[in-house]
């Protein structure tokens, strides 16, 4: 089976700063992958490329067998038009560290907006699906609340409901608990765990929660300085890392005895 995510020799720099320096990664459909590594190692950039918010400087990036940035036309590869880009982009969804809810819309309308305008669902159907997703994240009673009146944890739940409602094949989670108060983290992680255990979506999770990464992912990828240092089963990464850098990172976070 073809991988749903395929990266070959991907490089990305912002100005002078080389953030990704040759990434090879293949993720089969349905897998949950946690991406760990020190800050500034390029984890978030990887997700931005997968979400097609930024484009690679070099290398191959394919979602479900298609490159978002190039398309075949008259037998050769041409730069993609917006239509092709959106056709590929529609297979991916993302939840952000800072939620990025639309402040001028209620929770319900945050979820409904793209259902109405992108998927072009009829209004009743869009509302039904949005309400269903909101109750799935425990926010049925907050449908009419505006983001300003929600707690961080509630905002992130709305953001998750909003992304899930689009039913993407691939979901990306970019440090989605980092901006939350500690007591709210557990609930969000439990929600993630529930999603990944269904195995219906491919999930790529950038996280600092090692225990979570260990317990709920099929695979852990360790990033450092713009390259993938180690890639394997959670047990292997956390308990028998092959690389010194992985060991030091894991030890620093979990403590040597973990």
């Amino acid at each position: 089976m073809n991988p749903i995510i395929r990266l070959r020799g991907v490089h990305k720099a912002y100005g002078e700063l080389a953030v990704l320096r040759g990434i090879d990664l293949e993720v089969p459909a349905g897998q949950t992958v946690s991406v760990i590594g020190p800050s500034g190692s390029g984890k978030s950039t990887l997700l931005r490329l997968l979400m097609t918010l930024d484009r690679p400087d070099q290398g191959v990036l394919e979602i479900d067998g298609e490159s978002p940035w190039t398309m075949e036309k008259n037998g050769s590869q041409q730069p993609a038009d917006e239509r092709h880009l959106r056709q590929v982009r529609g297979k991916v969804g993302m939840v952000f560290q800072h939620f990025n809810l639309f402040p001028h819309m209620s929770a319900l309308h945050n979820v409904m907006e793209a259902l109405l305008r992108v998927l072009r669902l009829p209004r009743t159907e869009a509302e039904a699906r949005a309400r269903e997703r909101l109750s799935a994240v425990g926010l049925a009673d907050k449908a009419d609340a505006y983001p300003a009146h929600l707690s961080g944890g509630q905002k992130q739940r709305v953001a998750i409901a909003r992304a899930l409602a689009m039913q993407p094949k691939v979901m990306l989670f970019d440090e989605i608990t980092s901006a939350l108060d500690p007591e709210l983290v557990g609930g969000i992680l439990a929600l993630l765990h529930e999603m990944s255990s269904k195995r219906t979506m491919t999930m790529v999770i950038v996280t600092h929660h090692m225990r979570f990464a260990e317990s709920c992912s099929d695979r852990v990828v360790f990033f450092d300085e713009g390259v993938i240092v180690e890639d394997g089963a959670p047990k292997a990464i956390f308990h028998e890392p092959r690389h010194e850098r992985t060991r030091r990172f894991v030890d620093a976070i979990l403590g040597p005895e973990a």
Binding site: T52, L53, V92, F96, N100, P103, H104, V118, R162, M166
Partner: peptide
């Protein structure tokens, strides 16, 4: 209007025009 609003709209696969009219201009 914060960059994150454009990111969120793009992640929901909204078009550039939809992003402008529905997300950016109202804010």
């Amino acid at each position: 209007v914060p960059r994150g609003q454009y990111d969120a709209a793009a992640a929901l696969n909204m078009s550039r025009l939809q992003t402008l009219y529905r997300i950016v201009l109202p804010q």
